[in-house]
Structures are given as C-alpha cells and as structure tokens.
C-alpha cells in the first residue's frame, strides 16, 4: 500500500492527494503536524526525510521526497495512458518539466506569503507577494494566448498533465497570502477547468466546482 506522509493544509501535500485521487489509488495517510506542532522538525520525521520537508511518498521499497518528483513517479507508475506525464514528443516532455519548475517557484513565493500571513512564519511576505505577482502575470498571459489556440491546459494537448496538478494548489490558495486573483481572468478560467477533472478532490481553502458537492 502506498503511504503518504502528509499535512492537511499543505498545498504540496494536497497536489499528491489530488493526483492519487485522480488515478484512483488507495493510500495510507500519515499525518505529520507541520503546524502548529512543527513535527516535521522532530527526529521521528527527520529519519524519514532529513530535509524535514513534506510530502514524502513510500511505495514498496521506494521512498520519494519533493512533490513534483512524486507526481512524476505516480504518473509513470500508474497512468497507463501516458496522459499525465507526456513522453509522446520531446517538446511536450520539456514543457511539462518547465511547468513543474514553475510550481517550485510558486512554492517559494505564493506559498511563502501564505505561511507568513496565515501561520506566522518569519518570511518576508511583501517580497513573496511581489514574486508571486510576477509569476501569476506570466501564467495568465500563457493561458490567455493558449486558449486562443484552443488549448485548455498548461502543456499543449487535449488533456491535462501533472503540470496542471503541480501549479494548481498555490495559485488557488493565493488569497491566504494576500495575493488576489481578480486581475488574472485566464488563471481563473483554468482553475475552474482543473476543478472539473474527473476524480478531483478538495482541501481546506479550495472549494469544488459545485458548492456543497464534496
């Protein structure tokens, strides 16, 4: 059975739960109280991941850290269609990895602002917001031009990829860090599309496409 070291309010943990749900995989959820308990800094968890970062996925003998790597693994291991991690053309593989890198930049900015505002972490919230705003502008422009060419997702093609799953959480939780999404209409349309992916699940702070349905 797959085991996920998990924290309920973490966007990076949520993206793994979301992918597991979309792929229809059962897993054991092991709660590590990141806040307020800071259990990720205690020896018990440091023995699992010396960097003290969540999430961690265990599957058989494999232990993986870094949420983007975990998404890649799940797609390669459990998605027979090849939709979620595209290997059909070199360009699409490269584009997918580019957006996984973008997701890490969202963690460093939009997520940092959220931790500063919401959980009292000693980060520079204003610098994080400024960084997030630049990323959101790039993302919105990309999606806007993409829509004009008939593409719904971050990587060109008919179906969503792990790039969409990787970038979605900290975009959707941005208001908790004081970053509004009103100025980014293409982002808002894209997040609505992500919410309609079959198997979609929510986390606190993110509502389903139809209120009251989950």
């Amino acid at each position: 059975m797959i085991r996920l070291y998990d924290y309920d309010l973490s966007g990076n943990c949520y993206k793994v739960r979301l992918m597991l749900a979309i792929l229809g995989l059962d897993y054991e959820r092991k709660n590590v109280e990141f806040f307020p308990g800071k259990r990720h800094r205690e020896p018990e968890f440091l023995a699992v991941n010396p960097l003290g970062q969540l999430p961690v996925l265990e599957d058989g003998d494999l232990r993986l850290t870094q949420s983007q790597a975990i998404l890649t693994y799940l797609a390669r291991a459990y998605d027979a269609s090849g939709q979620w991690f595209p290997l059909d053309t070199p360009a699409r593989t490269g584009q997918c990895l580019q957006w996984l890198g973008f997701a890490d930049a969202l963690t460093a900015t939009a997520s940092a602002a959220r931790l500063a505002d919401g959980m009292g972490f000693d980060f520079d919230g204003d610098a994080a917001r400024e960084g997030a705003h630049k990323l959101f502008a790039v993302l919105d422009e990309h999606l806007w031009f993409h829509e004009r060419e008939g593409h719904d997702w971050l990587v060109p093609g008919a179906a969503p990829t792990i790039a969409d799953i990787a970038c979605f959480p900290y975009v959707m939780l941005s208001e908790e860090g004081g970053i509004p999404r009103e100025p980014f209409p293409a982002i808002r349309r894209w997040t609505d599309r992500v919410k309609r992916i079959p198997g979609f699940v929510v986390m606190p702070g993110i509502f389903p496409a139809i209120l009251g349905s989950q």
Partner: peptide, 16 residues
C-alpha cells in the same frame, strides 16, 4: 494532533 487537525481543517474551509 488529530483534534487540532479537525479544527484547523474546518477553519481552513472558512478562510476563502
């Protein structure tokens, strides 16, 4: 930690 989890889950839903 489960009791805190339950309460923070609910509060997290209120945030947006």
């Amino acid at each position: 930690d489960f009791i805190s989890h339950f309460q923070l889950h609910i509060f997290g839903q209120d945030k947006p």
